[in-house]
Amino acid sequence: MIGKWSHALRVAGAVAAQRWRQSLRYPMNFVLNGVVQPLSWLAPVYFLGRAFAVDGRVPGLAAYTGSGDFTSFFLSGAIVAGLVGSVLWGMGFALKQQMDQGVLEANWLTPSSRFAQLVGVSLFDLTYTVVQFAITLGLAAALFGFHPTGSFWLALGFLVPVIAGLYGFGFALAGAVLLMRDANMLIDTSNFIVNVLSGENFPVKVLPPALLAISLALPTTYAMDGLRGLLLGTRTLWPVTWEFAALCVLAAWLIVLGRWSFLAVERFCRRRGTLALR
């Protein structure tokens, strides 16, 4: 059992190292994708916030959340949204790239675990996101201002279970990519919907009731809400400990469901011999 895990870890580590090497071969891409992109996505909401701001604070947002510091509100949402993007794109898109280049079959014929290969790719994306966010947060704080009033480290605790849950979602999405043989639209749309319904740039209280019900079933909603509660002192939907418990339960459920659906699709594709198609 230990041998199996250590082998899986070695495979994941090797895949992640290979992806890092590839990424660093395109330095312009690294800078533009890693720094310019997250900053440019913050601009539309930041300037929108400025349109509603009175003396640097937004009274309307304060009425909903208890905090009118719109910049910090958006930035903390962007932290979780960045994680969502990195795991989902990491798993699904890498699979599609291998399909397009015709190496998926060859890679999957090796004796290494397919899950370990998938985790390896997203491990790269995750570490990439951490580096990216350290830089982006620093730049954004300098450009727009970021004023956390609560415990930064306690707030980061919310990110551990959400990453685990996102891996489950990523497994399911990778299965869907195998089935539909298309990645961009599927991942882009899932990524966007998850981030919007989790309240990346607004408190989920403003959602219509039907969308709010879906939002409350997503672990990322509790991650964003809890993170803001601990970091900025905003009013949370539920007490923070309850939100943490809900987040853990939903994340565990997503891992089981994601793993099961990926295995089912993979079996289906191998039986039909469609792994090499694109």
Binding site: P44, V45, L48, G49, A51, F52, V58, P59, G60, L61, A62, A63, Y64, F70, F192, N195, V196, E200, N201, F202, P203, V206, L207
Partner: peptide, 12 residues
Amino acid sequence: AYVFSIRALAGP
């Protein structure tokens, strides 16, 4: 996404 952001910024 921005419609909901605007509603939040405008307040209840």
